[in-house]
Simulated scan of single mutants.
Amino acid sequence: MPDVGSVDIELELIQWLQAKVGPSVVVRDEVDNSLLDDLPTIQVQRLPAGGDDGFRLDRALVDVDVYHSTRAAAIALAGQVRGWLLRELPGAVTENAVFGRVTSTPPPAVRPYENTALRRVGATYQIYSHPVS
């Protein structure tokens, strides 16, 4: 664990979301050529933005994209993820992280994707966290 920069927000969110959605949904940081075989998939990626206070508090901007076979299914799952992140993640504690304020502006929206056999819906979240100890 680095002294500054707090927690591995991608790893923590992947594990936290995987526990929420269960084994029927794949949660990961990168998509690959087998994406069509792994629907639905939630992709979690920290953006090169945000910052920290130089001590322990991290403000991460994180893209969360949902890939599904239909637009309606992708929108529904993205809405469910948004609800969990905004209502249940603040105050949550994992083995490595304590989560604080979470915001999303705007809410999830359809995002283009080059493969027309699937649909992508995503949002960017601002998530505050710090290490447990």
Rank of each mutant, 00 (worst) to 15 (best):
R120Y: 08
V98P: 01
P2N: 07
V102N: 05
A19V: 01
L86M: 09
A92I: 04
I9E: 01
Y67K: 01
I42V: 15
L36D: 15
P23H: 10
P90K: 01
L77V: 09
A117Q: 14
E12I: 10
E88M: 10
V25P: 05
T70L: 09
A60L: 03
V121Y: 03
Y113G: 11
D58S: 15
N96Q: 13
P2Q: 08
Y67M: 04
V98M: 12
T116S: 15
R59I: 13
L13F: 06
E12H: 09
A92D: 06
A49N: 12
H130W: 10
A97N: 07
F99T: 04
L39I: 14
T103I: 14
I127S: 07
A97L: 08
G54D: 05
R119N: 14
L86S: 03
H130F: 06
G54V: 01
V64L: 13
V102F: 09
T103V: 14
D29H: 13
G91E: 06
N96C: 04
T41E: 02
V64P: 04
E10R: 08
A60N: 11
Y128H: 14
G51L: 03
G5R: 02
V93L: 10
N96D: 12
V26L: 15
Y125E: 00
R119M: 12
R82V: 02
I75L: 13
D29S: 15
L118V: 06
I9L: 07
G51S: 05
L85P: 02
H68T: 04
L118N: 00
G51A: 01
V27A: 09
P48N: 15
R82A: 10
D3Y: 07
D63I: 05
F99H: 02
P90G: 03
D63R: 11
G79L: 01
V27S: 08
V31G: 08
P112C: 05
V7N: 04
R59H: 14
G122Y: 06
L57G: 00
P108T: 04
A109T: 12
Q80M: 10
R46Q: 15
A92P: 02
A109L: 12
T41L: 07
A72V: 12
T124N: 12
V93P: 04
S34M: 14
V110E: 12
R28Y: 04
N33Y: 10
D65E: 10
Q18K: 05
R120M: 10
G22P: 06
D52Y: 01
V27T: 09
V62I: 15
M1R: 04
R71M: 08
D37K: 14
D3I: 00
Y125A: 01
L77Q: 08
P107W: 05
G122P: 07
P131Y: 03
T124P: 05
E88W: 07
E95D: 12
A78D: 03
E88L: 13
E30R: 13
D29K: 13
A72C: 00
A19P: 00
L85E: 00
A92W: 08
Q18D: 05
Q80P: 00
G83D: 11
Y113Q: 07
L89G: 08
S104L: 02
R28K: 12
N33L: 14
S69A: 15
A60I: 00
G5L: 07
V81C: 09
